[in-house]
Design a protein around this nucleic acid. Structure first.
Lengths: 186, 186
DNA sequence: GGGGAATAATGAATCACTGCACAATGTTGA
DNA sequence: TCAACATTGTGCAGTGATTCATTATTCCCC
C-alpha cells in the first residue's frame, strides 16, 4: 500500500523519483529522452492519482464520494432552478451515461432530485435539495482546505508554470485526438 | 463529447483554459489564489485524463486495455521467471485485488499465465506467455510513439520543470497522507 | 405537414479500482 | 512448540467511467 517513492534532487535542482528511475532503467532500459518523458509522465499521473485519493478520503466523512461531490458542486452551481443532466456531463467532461449513475447515487442519498423539464420533455432537470446544498457547502470547505494545504506547497510562480505546462500538454492531446476523430469519422 | 476548452495566453505568457476560468468565475466565484489553484489542478487532471484516453484508444487495436498493458509490461519486465502478483501491485501503485482482476483478464486473453510459487505456497507467480511477450513488444512501440508525439510537445527544459513540479506536489501529498495514516492507525 | 436526422436520458455490458472479509500459509516470539 | 500475528491471493460488493443500443422527443428541411 505504501508507495515506493524516494524523492531526490537532480544536479540541476529538479526533483525526481529515484526508485522509479532505478526500476525503469533496470527493467525497461529507458534512457535519455525516453527516460525523461517517462519520468515526467509518471510524476504527472501519480500526482493526480494521489490528490484524487486525498480528496476521496477527506470527503468520506461527509458521506459523499469525490465523483459525487464534483457532480453535486456542478449541479449546485447551476443555481436553484437546476439544469439538464447533459450540461453536467459537459461541464465535468464526462459521458452523459456517467452522470446518470452519479445522479442515481446522489438522489438515493437525498442530495439531489430529478424533475421533468417542462420546456423539453426528453430532458430531466436535476437540482440540489436542501440537504444537497448543505453537503455541498461542507464539501467545498473541505475541498478548499485540501487544495490550500497541498497545492499551497507551490509558489504562485510555480503554480503558473504547472498550469502552463499541463495546459500545453492538454492542448496538444486534444488537437491530436480531434484529428483522430476526424480521421475515423471521415 | 467534445471538450469545451478554449486555450488562451496570459499577459505573462502562461497558457490557461479560458472557458474553465469563465465558468469557475461565474458559478463558483473563485478568484486570486483559489482560482489559480483550481486552474492548475484542473489542467493537471485534464491532461492526465486525456493522455490516458489516448493510450487507451491507441492500444485498442492490439486488443489490450491500457490497464492490462501496464500490468503486462510490468510482469514482462520482471523477466522470464515471472514474479508474485504482489510485486506487480506494488510496482503499479495499485491494490493487490486490482492485480487479481487485471491478471484474470490477461490470462483469459492468453497473454499471461499463473504458476504456483514453489518457495511460498500462499503466493502465485504470474509470467508472460509467448503471445504476451509479443503483445507487450507491440504495445511498447505504440506507447513510445504516443509518448514521443504528445510529450514531445514540451522541450527538455519544460519536461524537467513539469517533472519537478508534479514530483514536488506528489511528495507533499504522500507526506500528508502518510501523516493521516499514522493518525488513523494510532 | 411530415419524414428523417439530431438530441436527452437510460438499460446492458464491460473495465479499472477500491474496501472488507476470509482461508491458506508463513513468521515470530514467549 | 505453539499460539498470535502477518502476508498472499481472491470472493463479494460497490463506485466511477466507458461504449453501444434503445426509447422518447425535438428540430429542421423539403
Amino acid at each position: 500500500m505504501l508507495p515506493p517513492s524516494r524523492f531526490e534532487t537532480d544536479e540541476a535542482g529538479y526533483l525526481y523519483d529515484a526508485s522509479f528511475r532505478e526500476n525503469i532503467a533496470k527493467y525497461a532500459r529507458l534512457e535519455g529522452d525516453k527516460l525523461l518523458r517517462a519520468e515526467a509522465f509518471r510524476s504527472l499521473v501519480m500526482a493526480t492519482k494521489r490528490l484524487d485519493q486525498v480528496f476521496e478520503a477527506e470527503l468520506e466523512n461527509l458521506g459523499v464520494t469525490y465523483g459525487q461531490y464534483k457532480a453535486l458542486m456542478c449541479i449546485k452551481n447551476f443555481g436553484v432552478g437546476g439544469t439538464q443532466m447533459n450540461n453536467v456531463a459537459e461541464f465535468l467532461s464526462v459521458t452523459p451515461r456517467n452522470v446518470t449513475g452519479l445522479v442515481d447515487n446522489l438522489e438515493a442519498a437525498g442530495l439531489v432530485e430529478r424533475v421533468p423539464d417542462p420546456a423539453d420533455r426528453r430532458a430531466t432537470i436535476v437540482r440540489a435539495t436542501a440537504a444537497g446544498e448543505a453537503a455541498g457547502a461542507r464539501g467545498r470547505r473541505v475541498h478548499e482546505a485540501v487544495m490550500a494545504k497541498l497545492m499551497g506547497i507551490l509558489s504562485e510562480e510555480e503554480m503558473l508554470q504547472l498550469r502552463h505546462l499541463s495546459t500545453k500538454l492538454l492542448r496538444a492531446v486534444e488537437e491530436v485526438s480531434a484529428g483522430d476523430r476526424r480521421k475515423t469519422n471521415g
